[in-house]
Simulated scan of single mutants.
Amino acid sequence: MAIYFRRRSPLHLPITLSVSLMALNVTLMVCWIILLAEQAEWTALTIGVVTFTMILIGLSFWLALTIKEIRLNHRQANFVDSVTHELKSPIAALQLSLETLRMRDLDEDKRAEFHAMMAEELTRLDQLIEQLLEVGRLDAIGAHERPETVPLQTLLYRCAESACIQHHVDIERVLTFDVPRISIHARRMMLQLVFSNLIDNAVKYADDPPAVRIEAFPTGADRVTVRITDNGSGVSYDERKKVFRIFYRGGSELERRRKGTGLGLYIVYTIVRRLKGKVTVLDRVDGEQGCTFQVELPGRVNQPESTDDSSGGSDAASELSTREEDAA
């Protein structure tokens, strides 16, 4: 299977063949029209024109499907390269650490350092496997849960905390929140997958130093809009729809410097559609470098009930805001 995926078929061959056949078809059709028009064979002329037209349409469809299949093959090849690298890297690091611990007599501080690194690699491996499993069970995600009123402030803050821990950055320096007390009536697990992937991407692909802004606001009587903005290199206009395709990652996987599998945004797109929402990629409103991922979701836009969960999220966000003001 991997060998099949790695065969990156060139596009020029099917394109050249299809264009040649189309040109031949058009030439034959023109000759047919001229020949039979001179002889006033209108019935044969009509049948011939219809036949040549259907052949031309068939060739066009064949070309379009062939190009689509080759591009999917390229994305699958990139996916296999990416997953192979992502699986080998933590395994190699674990193997090296175990050999070092076994062959050398290290002090307690060094051993603790190696143990921490091994735990980090195991977490990375677990997250990769979990993401691969999520793609396989997208249709079943959240099926066992009942929709509930989820405080958006708490959910976004916890997703941001997880992303910052994963990428070893300080949440107070990287994240800026502008999230009022809004609740969404949906399945919590589905919302968590959507915003975890988007915030993780924003932190991962942000510039150095990273700066990510998360804002939410009600739109209409029953919808919520969440915007996640980063200061990375942005997404070109031509790729703004492609990034949500399964396996898609721009460029060659062998030349890439960022880790990933090309599955995160596909998961986001699929879940948002199941929630009857919409996700898009936009330029930053302020015109600066970076991009904004905007998610529009249906749900109740109201003041959440006073629960431990919501108050905890509010306290956490308020604490973050206070720290930012103190730092300023």
Score class of each variant (00 low, 15 high):
1 M>S: 14
3 I>F: 11
4 Y>T: 14
8 R>Y: 10
13 L>H: 08
15 I>W: 07
17 L>E: 12
21 L>W: 10
23 A>V: 15
28 L>A: 14
31 C>H: 05
34 I>Q: 06
37 A>T: 13
37 A>R: 06
38 E>V: 07
38 E>L: 13
39 Q>K: 10
41 E>Q: 12
41 E>P: 00
45 L>Q: 08
46 T>M: 14
51 T>L: 14
52 F>W: 11
52 F>E: 12
55 I>K: 00
57 I>H: 00
61 F>R: 08
61 F>H: 08
61 F>M: 12
65 L>S: 09
66 T>V: 08
67 I>L: 15
69 E>A: 15
71 R>A: 04
72 L>W: 02
80 V>Q: 11
84 T>M: 12
85 H>K: 09
85 H>V: 13
88 K>E: 15
89 S>R: 11
89 S>W: 10
90 P>A: 10
98 L>I: 10
102 R>V: 12
104 R>S: 14
105 D>T: 13
107 D>E: 10
111 R>W: 11
111 R>E: 15
113 E>A: 10
115 H>R: 04
116 A>M: 10
117 M>T: 11
117 M>Q: 14
118 M>G: 02
119 A>R: 09
122 L>G: 09
125 L>V: 10
127 Q>K: 13
128 L>W: 07
128 L>N: 07
129 I>F: 09
131 Q>C: 07
137 R>A: 09
137 R>E: 14
138 L>I: 11
139 D>A: 14
144 H>V: 15
144 H>I: 15
145 E>T: 01
150 V>I: 12
154 T>E: 15
163 A>Y: 06
164 C>S: 05
168 H>A: 14
171 I>H: 04
171 I>C: 04
173 R>W: 03
179 V>K: 02
179 V>R: 00
185 H>Q: 11
186 A>C: 06
186 A>R: 03
187 R>H: 08
189 M>G: 08
190 M>S: 05
193 L>A: 13
195 F>R: 00
198 L>F: 06
198 L>N: 02
199 I>M: 03
200 D>G: 07
201 N>P: 04
202 A>S: 13
205 Y>K: 01
209 P>G: 06
212 V>Q: 06
223 R>S: 10
225 T>V: 15
226 V>N: 02
227 R>T: 05
232 G>W: 02
232 G>E: 07
235 V>Q: 00
239 E>H: 08
243 V>W: 02
247 F>H: 12
248 Y>M: 05
250 G>P: 04
254 L>Y: 04
256 R>F: 05
257 R>E: 15
261 T>W: 04
262 G>S: 01
263 L>N: 04
264 G>R: 00
265 L>P: 03
267 I>G: 00
269 Y>K: 07
272 V>Y: 03
273 R>Q: 13
273 R>I: 09
275 L>Y: 01
275 L>F: 02
277 G>T: 01
282 L>G: 00
284 R>A: 00
286 D>A: 01
287 G>P: 05
289 Q>M: 10
291 C>N: 09
291 C>W: 07
294 Q>C: 11
295 V>R: 01
295 V>P: 02
295 V>T: 10
298 P>Y: 05
299 G>K: 01
299 G>D: 12
300 R>P: 01
301 V>Q: 11
304 P>F: 08
306 S>P: 04
309 D>I: 15
310 S>K: 02
312 G>R: 06
318 S>T: 08
319 E>V: 06
319 E>Q: 11
320 L>V: 09
322 T>Y: 09
322 T>M: 14
325 E>C: 09
